[in-house]
Design a protein around this nucleic acid. Structure first.
Lengths: 341, 341
DNA sequence: CGTTTTTCCGTAAACGTTTACGAGAACACA
DNA sequence: TGTGTTCTCGTAAACGTTTACGGAAAAACG
């Protein structure tokens, strides 16, 4: 069925070594023979077997992205990742690399699946998301010397890997600034409970901004919940119990914000009227929710391209002239003012 | 770095053939030696090189899903696919298969990328989505004899492949029934312009239901648009120009519905009050939009599991006792009544 | 004890590539 | 003519597996 390099060689009456060299554009092959080989390859519909090639070269020419659905509403996908992956794919394709997305089951933190990818050499490098403050995946990868990059920072693994993150600290701070400027003094913060790193960054920014404005940080206004709609629904009432209710809430996640707004609605509190609501990472849901949620928006597609670039620069086989520079970048989030605050 | 089967053999002072047999659970190996091999494998952290294995066996033990982002709003992902992929992955994992998602660039219809996957043998089978009425990908795959399954039907490729689709015809029909029961007679339909097959199915159901109710099908109430928000925004006004305006619109896609509602709002027409709006495939966006959109909901995660099952049954290496039965299934869409109609 | 069967394992080929090495031919140069 | 260089190609090994085959040893059987 599939034509191999042997078929080509036999057909052209020429050795397989020469065919391979011709195909791979090496210098030591006659221009005429190369032309014949390329023609024959097209005619016989030849394309190299990836397994054979990978085995010989020790490289698969593909990058794996570990996609980790959160447990929760089955109808709710991660609209966040598609634009990011689009950018990632585009840049990788320019360097002849394939992007493969490895799905995990919801809930498990993909350590096992990551091991499989690494140990069976399914990809030449790996891209991680949802980085945690202490992330065993990062420890594992640095320890095993497998190339990787992360979307998001972590404390784990030293400094020796490319990462790209959003400036959650500044977003948390900006969100507070904006609310204070609009007259709020009692501002609540709701973030994911797992030790996802961006939750800490956000809270740091939130705290610092409050202090800067001379507002005391009230632990009763800070709550952690599971990172989905149910989590937001469950945890939001906790910051509303104090006699001195907050007049604003910053949600560190869109799904949690939606659940939170549901809880508020059941208490008869209307976002945009009775309380100001700000969301740190914007998604289409924020835009279409009513009231439309003021949110901080990332540039996902360019971020995907950029992280691909950074990863490539760290891969020996692709490192540019300036060599293997490990880059870490933090990108801004842009405020999109809407109706909810 | 990576330990090979040779390392194991050397370490145990035993031949690589025996090691391989022990690892693969073949019968002709002594129970004692098997135990030693498995222990050593764990100790040396051995796992088989996938390239070597694939090369020898001619199978990669992985299934590829071709993910095709639509061009359009960069912030808008395809929340549709994540639950589906979650189900697909779960079932495949049970049979020891990996799911890899191959991303395409937005816009191109992935024919080229599909060829790459097939010809370089990156996967043992392929799962396609967004099937078109005449689908060159399906023609290509049937012609080349490469195993595949589709999410969605098509006219192409004969009957010889497993497919799972939603009953868009019934949904279109049900939507009309419901609207007629609520007193509507002028019902518009808006569907994607590309020859995506579900657009035809939907329209068939829509037409048949109208006829059944003795309502004449008015071509002025049917419009095609690009399958994203901009498309819905652009095309919706076209069905609103007639002197005898529709009192209801059925959108065949959530993003188009959102764009359409924006256009309606600009005309001062309020969905749920001045006009009834129904959406054929429900997504979280429909639920959170205001007014919440009445929509037909698919059971995505079970569908993913089921399609994996069907694909497995068609793969020689996995076919159950009853052999290679090709199955085609059509799953119902469940009405979720909300505020928009 | 002789013969047959079973158990277990080693040998080696094969999958489809890439690439180090070397060799023959052509050419250049003195 | 002799020597060195350049072009071009064939040979064969190697990547890490799996598996058909055969054979030695052990067990079973008469």
């Amino acid at each position: 069925m599939a034509s191999s390099i042997h078929d080509l060689a036999r057909h052209l009456n020429i050795s397989i070594g020469t065919v391979s060299r011709a195909l791979n554009g090496r210098a030591d092959v006659n221009a005429e023979t190369r032309k014949r080989v390329l023609e024959a390859a097209r005619a016989l519909n030849y394309s190299p077997n990836q397994s054979g090639r990978s085995l010989r070269q020790g490289a698969t020419r593909s990058i794996a992205f570990m996609l980790q659905p959160h447990p929760g509403d089955q109808q709710y996908g991660e609209p966040f990742f598609i634009p990011f992956l689009t950018g990632l794919q585009a840049r990788l394709a320019e360097s002849g690399l394939d992007l493969i997305v490895v799905m995990g089951a919801p809930g498990d933190y993909q350590q096992e699946r990551l091991r499989r990818v690494v140990e069976t050499r399914r990809a030449d490098a790996v891209v991680l998301a949802w980085t945690r403050r202490e992330d065993e995946r990062i420890d594992y990868l640095t320890e095993s010397g497998f190339p990787f990059a992360t979307l998001g920072r972590s404390r784990s693994g030293g400094k020796a890997y490319p990462s790209l993150d959003l400036d959650f600290e500044k977003a948390g701070s900006d969100a507070v600034d904006r609310l204070v400027a609009r007259g709020h003094r009692r501002i609540a913060a709701i973030r994911p409970a797992l030790n996802l790193n961006f939750g800490y960054l956000f809270l740091d920014g939130y705290r610092k901004a409050l202090k800067r404005h001379g507002i005391e940080v009230d632990p009763g206004l800070i709550a952690d919940g599971f990172i989905n709609e149910a989590g937001g629904y469950q945890v939001t009432p906790r910051v509303m119990v104090s006699k001195d209710r907050p007049t604003a809430i910053i949600f560190n996640n869109d799904a949690m914000a939606l659940g939170g707004c549901k809880a508020l609605a059941e208490m008869g509190i209307r976002p945009g009227h009775d309380i100001a609501v700000t969301v740190i990472v914007d998604t289409p849901l924020c835009r279409y929710f009513s009231p439309a949620l003021t949110a901080f928006r990332p540039a996902l597609e360019p971020m995907g391209r950029r992280l691909a670039e950074m990863l490539l620069a760290a891969l020996p086989a692709f490192a540019g002239p300036e060599g293997t520079r490990i880059i870490r970048e933090v990108w801004p989030l842009e405020l999109v003012a809407r109706e909810s605050d």
